[in-house]
Design a protein around this nucleic acid. Structure first.
Length: 859
DNA sequence: GCAAGGTC
């Protein structure tokens, strides 16, 4: 039997399909792992997929260092054994200007600043990371008479293959092994690769392993150092790494630019133009006046103007080209613009890929291979998604010339829908991403959009004004792909000499804006541009920076802690803070791969560079600890104590582990505030962070998967609730000839807010209220149902509602205002909706599972 | 308790 070892399951499956003599390969399982059995020229073959790297590098357990005997380990009875370490590490571990100050017997497993120099020079072992896969691999290897490594054709692939082979060698030391190198999972490539088997490239694998070692050594040493400089308790690791630290530095650098930015004043003159049946924006031909006097002079001419004359009408049409196919980075950027973070995009994409909706999601390629059945996919989409059917029909009728991106690789096709599966079974996030991918795919097969731009030149009291409007005259690809499309701005049909009304002309003082913060999508693109990380790692690295609290918010801001970390590393270990470390590492690895340098030399050189920085780092440990401590306190600050003026900070209760806000003046000052549970809370900065009503801090609350809101932390503050506010009079009571007032209440127990009539016993009139937002009475009643109208101050501004949830006006609002009105549903109505959604989801899940199972057994 | 790289 021949054993084919691929990097991942899909590759193992594809290879089996492409090499199999006749008919489909047989799906089989060895201990729950999928393997594929087939025959080649009558010979029995089996292929299996790994799960990427199956071994993980780590520092050995229980290895110690002694000045005289070097590295050693202790047996269980305490016997000293020389450790099996590579020659290069037999040297004194730490070439410091000082003599090593440590006692003998340093254990590198303990997190101690004193052991960091030894960690820098520690040997590295590789531990099994995928025990199940290794078990299957060994099981099959024992039964095989030859083994073919068919992992991806790149540096990491070669390393993954070499690691797999080392596991095979443990059970089959003499089995012949060879390597198949294919760069695309298509018949011609794969058969050619298996017809021309080569040897595993040990140098290339060594290069990959050097990368692993250097990343681990630098990452572990600096992470331990930062964590220990000011230990913040377990769960408060301050990490550093070759990719994450330069990425953080990008964000910090942008923030510094913003802070150093000096805004410049400018002035704008803008107003409204109107014809009998339409209104449009007009602005002075000089878009920005930098001279205040000139702006005021121009404004004085038009301030009281009521009419303007059209001087010229010009029309220009421009074409917008359809987008190029998605690779990982462009998908992440497009999804980020739709509010899905890169990390979440990858989690959802993985699930869509695993259930057969989309192609493999980790790709650099942006050119569809010739072998891809574009027409078949469009047909599949057409029958699977009713919403896409009309546009699919158009695509099928057209010439279907796909666009091409700049990056052409042959490993996988660009990310595209498979045309399989029923999109109705997907959940919210999946559906959103699937639609983006499906619509992008269709757009790449369509023609350009044509936008007609109309420009009006208008004379207003001798001053030149303009108005512009963009109208999509031929949607082209936009019919499939509306993402990021600006709304039409239609100007009325006007001709030279026509006179229009003008009004509301204003002189506005403005200031230039600092450079924008990175969005998560932009940061992923910037990382790619600078060679930081790979398509598979960038999203998770950004996410990591959020979990260690170096970053916050979106657009991305660095925390004080993040800035302190960059400052410290910039001063004492600058190499880790720039993309150059990655560039130099790449150059080193190329030399190792070419056989011009060795793993030992390259890794030792890197160890020496790190060791050279340790002296200064250790010397300044306490300074850094203080800086981190100050930064953490500053990050926790939510405001100033209204009672004693000291800082109010987020604290964690030792007893309940819940969060609360407390005064730094404790125990002298006892001011505390509760913090809503189940939401992510962050302080608001500047004026927004202080409640104008009561002086307590205002905070931003981010509930899981719903809109963030802001509120004052003081539960007794009038901004949280106006108790016993009269919002109107009871209509039912009035009809019955008595008087009843409608009063707003808040339940002490549940915290729910509602309106109830003072004669509730008799009329039973009560209305629910939204859970948050300051309430104002208007004195008005709803024209549709006669219930009172109130204003609720929400995060998105004031919101007028009729308190009667059964009011007929609600239906209209739901359609016209979308989310805003949806929030006005009664809790009962909400419950029904929630139930429906859950039921739908459960049904959807069941269907998906059924389908997948059905599909699997069919294969 | 550390990184970054694969992929589940």
């Amino acid at each position: 039997m021949k054993l084919v070892i691929a990097e991942k399951n899909i590759a193992a499956q594809k290879i089996a399909q492409l090499l199999s003599d006749a008919g489909k390969p047989k799906n089989d399982k060895v201990y729950n792992t999928a393997v594929y059995r087939f025959t080649v020229d009558g010979e029995e073959w089996v292929s299996m997929g790994l799960a990427g790297h199956i071994l993980a590098p780590d520092f050995p357990d229980e290895i110690l260092f002694d000045e005289k005997q070097g590295w050693y380990s202790l047996t269980e009875d305490g016997e000293v054994l020389p450790a099996d370490v590579p020659d290069g590490l037999a040297r004194p571990p730490y070439e410091s200007k000082r003599r090593p100050f440590l006692p003998n017997g340093i254990n590198i497993k303990g997190w101690k600043v004193e052991s960091l120099p030894y960690l820098t020079w520690s040997p590295i072992i590789k531990n099994p990371a995928e025990r199940e896969i290794i078990r299957v691999l060994k099981n099959l290897a024992k039964k095989s008479d030859s083994v073919i490594i068919a992992t991806d054709f790149d540096r990491e692939g070669e390393l993954i293959g070499a690691d797999a082979l080392s596991m095979v060698r443990e059970v089959a030391p003499d089995v012949p092994a060879s390597r198949a190198r294919y760069s695309a999972l298509i018949k011609a490539e794969v058969t050619a690769a298996f017809d021309n088997l080569v040897e595993l490239d040990e140098n290339l694998a060594d290069a990959g392993e050097s990368r692993q070692y250097i990343d681990l050594i630098w990452g572990a040493v600096l992470t331990r150092y930062l964590t220990l400089a000011k230990f913040g308790g377990f769960g408060n690791v301050r990490s550093a790494g070759r990719v994450q630290t330069p990425t953080l530095a990008l964000v910090v650098e942008r923030e510094r630019e913003r802070r150093a930015f000096v805004p410049e004043d400018y002035w704008q003159i803008r107003g409204m133009g109107a014809t009998a049946d339409s209104e449009f924006k007009i602005s002075h031909k000089t878009p920005r006046f930098t001279d205040k006097a000139a702006a005021e002079d121009a404004f004085s001419h038009v301030e009281h103007a009521t009419t303007g004359t059209i001087v010229e009408v010009s029309k220009r049409s421009r074409k917008q080209q359809p987008p190029v196919p998605f690779n990982t980075t462009s998908l992440q950027a497009a999804a980020a613009a739709e509010g899905i973070s890169p990390a979440r995009t990858m989690r959802i994409a993985e699930s869509l890929y695993m259930s057969g909706f989309i192609s493999y999601p980790r790709v650099d390629n942006t050119v569809y291979p010739r072998s891809l059945d574009l027409e078949g996919i469009v047909k599949g989409l057409s029958s699977g998604s009713p919403a896409l059917a009309p546009v699919c029909k158009k695509v099928l009728a057209g010439p279907m010339k796909p666009t091409r991106g700049k990056t052409e690789t042959t490993d996988h096709p660009p990310i595209h829908p498979t045309g399989q599966g029923d999109p109705e079974t997907l959940d919210g996030g999946q559906k959103k991403l699937y639609n983006l991918i499906a619509r992008r795919f269709l757009a790449t097969l369509m023609g350009p959009a044509t936008i007609e731009n109309t420009k009006l030149s208008i004379d207003v009291a001798g001053e030149p004004f303009t108005a512009t409007g963009d109208v999509l005259v031929d949607p082209g690809f936009r019919e499939a792909y509306p993402y990021g499309l600006k709304r039409d701005e239609q100007l009325p049909a006007l001709a030279q000499g026509d006179v229009i009304d003008v009004h509301d002309i204003k002189l506005e003082a403005k200031q230039t804006e600092p450079p924008a913060r990175y969005s998560q999508g932009k940061l992923v693109q910037e990382m790619e541009k600078r060679g930081l990380g790979t398509k598979s790692t960038r999203a998770s690295i950004i996410e990591r920076l959020y979990t260690v609290r170096y970053l916050k918010n979106d657009p991305i801001e660095p925390s004080q802690l993040g800035m302190a970390i960059i400052d410290a590393l910039h001063e004492f270990a600058p190499r880790i803070t720039t993309p150059e470390m990655t560039a130099e590492l790449d150059a080193d690895m190329t030399r190792v791969a070419e056989g011009k340098d060795t793993q030992e030399h390259v890794v030792d050189h890197s160890r020496a560079l790190l060791a050279g920085m340790l002296d200064a780092l250790i010397e300044h440990k306490d300074d850094l600890g203080e800086a981190i401590s100050d930064a953490v306190t500053a990050d926790a600050k939510v405001g100033e104590c209204p009672k004693c003026g000291k800082d109010l900070v987020m604290k964690t209760s030792a007893k309940t582990r819940g969060s609360f806000i407390g005064c730094m003046g404790w125990p002298d000052c006892d001011v505390t505030y509760p913090v809503p549970s189940g939401v992510k809370v962050s302080p608001l900065e500047g004026e927004a962070g202080v409640c104008p009503e009561c002086g307590a801090p205002r905070i931003k609350c981010q509930p899981f998967r719903s809109k963030a809101y802001e509120q004052c932390v003081n539960p007794k503050c009038p901004t949280n609730f106006e108790p016993d506010l009269k919002v109107g009079e009871c209509k039912v009571c009035a009809e019955a000839g008595r008087h009843g007032d409608l009063i707003a209440h808040k339940s002490e127990k549940s915290g729910k807010r509602f309106i109830r009539c003072t004669n509730y016993e008799e009329c039973q009139v009560s209305y629910p209220l939204p859970a948050r937002g300051k309430l104002q009475a208007t004195g008005e009643t709803c024209p549709e149902c006669g219930a009172p109208i109130v204003v609720v101050e929400t995060a998105r501004g004031p919101w007028r509602i009729c308190v009667n949830m059964e009011c007929p006006s609600k239906e209209k609002k739901t359609t016209s205002r979308g989310r805003g009105a949806a929030g006005s549903k009664t809790s009962a109505a909400k419950k029904t909706t929630a139930k429906k959604t859950t039921a739908k989801k459960t049904a959807a899940k069941k269907t998906t599972t059924k389908k997948t199972t059905a599909k699997k057994s069919a294969e």
